[in-house]
């Protein structure tokens, strides 16, 4: 089954806004990601992505702009980006833009670590 529907979550005080568009291959995760159970929150996102990856867009671009994050969410984001790497292996283009606020050393640090640990191109962008 091919993913046809967008996946959209509104942001809350502890979870980010999520927008995954299979038509354009543009994905965005933005806001706060500090839920008590990050695995449960990101589970539908992961399932959606695994399905999407069966017939991915020629180009997939994930934008991550997080104000606050917890360690549980970091692990889930790592899994999400890891899944996107599979699209690379299928010969499609796939990359991530990791935004961080000017002076936010923590989010910069997390972006650098992900760059170091993962093969997918991760562009760090200060805003």
């Amino acid at each position: 089954m091919m993913v046809k529907e967008n996946l959209i979550y509104e942001g809350t005080r502890s979870t980010p806004q999520v927008e995954l568009n299979p038509e354009t291959g543009k994905f965005r995760i933005e806001g706060r990601s500090i839920p008590e159970n990050a695995f449960e929150f990101y589970k539908p996102v992961m399932e959606w992505l695994i399905e999407y990856n069966k017939t991915p867009n020629v180009e997939t671009h994930l934008e991550i702009y997080l104000e606050y994050i917890n360690s549980g969410s970091l692990k889930q984001l790592f899994r999400i980006i890891y899944v996107l790497e599979d699209a690379l292996e299928m010969g499609n283009e796939s990359y991530v833009t990791w935004f961080y606020r000017k002076g936010d050393e923590l989010m910069l640090q997390k972006g650098l670590e992900f760059q170091q640990f993962l093969d997918i191109p991760i562009q760090l962008k200060e805003i």
């Binding site: 500090i34 104000e67 606050y68 994050i69 917890n70 360690s71 606020r101 002076g103 936010d104 923590l106």
Partner: peptide, 18 residues
Amino acid sequence: IDSSAVSQKLYLVIELLQ
């Protein structure tokens, strides 16, 4: 405090509390 330290301290707070 200056903004660069805010997110680090808040990260620590959320980790400790959770």
